[in-house]
């Protein structure tokens, strides 16, 4: 059911590689740039798939992705980072080596869990699904291990990208109305997170979420 488009695979691999780059990044603005890069790659992939299959909707979504994911959302994030001052370290609970190891293991889990389950999908479909699950898990890993609020937003965006990848790569995109809704939610979500990050910075004097530990029990 899926085109044997050989151009897809490298892009997907690249997308996954960006996740590892995020894990290795030391500066917040690098992370934001990497997220933008990932979004661009996604838009590229969507565009390729849309053109190859002749689905106009997908091309439109590719454009939308560029605008929102590579444009608006990084813009908001950048604003936040700028307003709270530059942070050069992405504080983490685990060191980088460990992060890489964990992320590698998660990729394995993703491959294993999709390998046998998704029988109905074609080979690239399976690969995309596995990559998507891996991105979801790595995104979550970033959120779990990184302490700064902005990094949590970044992790969230990686997850979101994984999701998008799954939607686009396996199903030619969701129905348009759903896609639009998702984009809207995403945008508002990041906006609200940004607002909250800003407020946290002004109340707590830091965006280190480790300090948000007053509500217990």
């Amino acid at each position: 059911m899926f085109l044997g488009n050989s151009g897809v695979s490298p892009v997907v691999t690249l997308i996954l590689a960006v996740c590892f780059l995020v894990l290795g990044a030391r500066r917040l603005d690098t992370v934001i740039r990497l997220v933008v890069f990932q979004a661009v790659l996604l838009a590229l992939l969507t565009g390729i798939l849309g053109l190859a299959n002749g689905i106009g909707e997908m091309v439109f979504i590719a454009g939308l992705t560029l605008v929102i994911k590579a444009g608006l959302i990084p813009f908001i994030l950048k604003k936040v980072v700028d307003r709270i001052g530059p942070r050069f370290e992405t504080r983490s609970y685990v060191n980088r080596k460990m992060s890489f190891l964990l992320a590698g293991a998660l990729v394995m889990v993703a491959y294993l869990s999709t390998g046998r389950i998704a029988q109905t999908l074609s080979a690239p479909g399976r690969e995309i699904l596995a990559t998507a699950i891996a991105m979801l898990l790595i995104g979550l890993l970033v959120m779990v291990t990184r302490k700064l609020a902005v990094m949590q937003i970044a992790g969230f965006l990686i997850m979101e990208n994984g999701l998008f990848l799954a939607g686009v790569g396996t199903t030619h995109g969701m129905p348009l109305v759903v896609e639009l809704g998702i984009f809207l939610d995403m945008l508002i979500g990041v906006l609200i997170m940004g607002i909250l990050t800003f407020r946290i910075q002004s109340s707590f004097g830091s965006i280190n979420t480790e300090k948000l530990r007053n509500l217990r029990g």
Partner: peptide, 22 residues
């Protein structure tokens, strides 16, 4: 269990999901 750390909480989610997947 409810120690206030959001990372821990996300970890719960994470572990639950991994266990269910396995």
């Amino acid at each position: 269990l409810q120690s206030g750390s959001i990372h821990l909480y996300l970890g719960y989610l994470f572990i639950t999901l991994v266990i269910l997947l396995i």
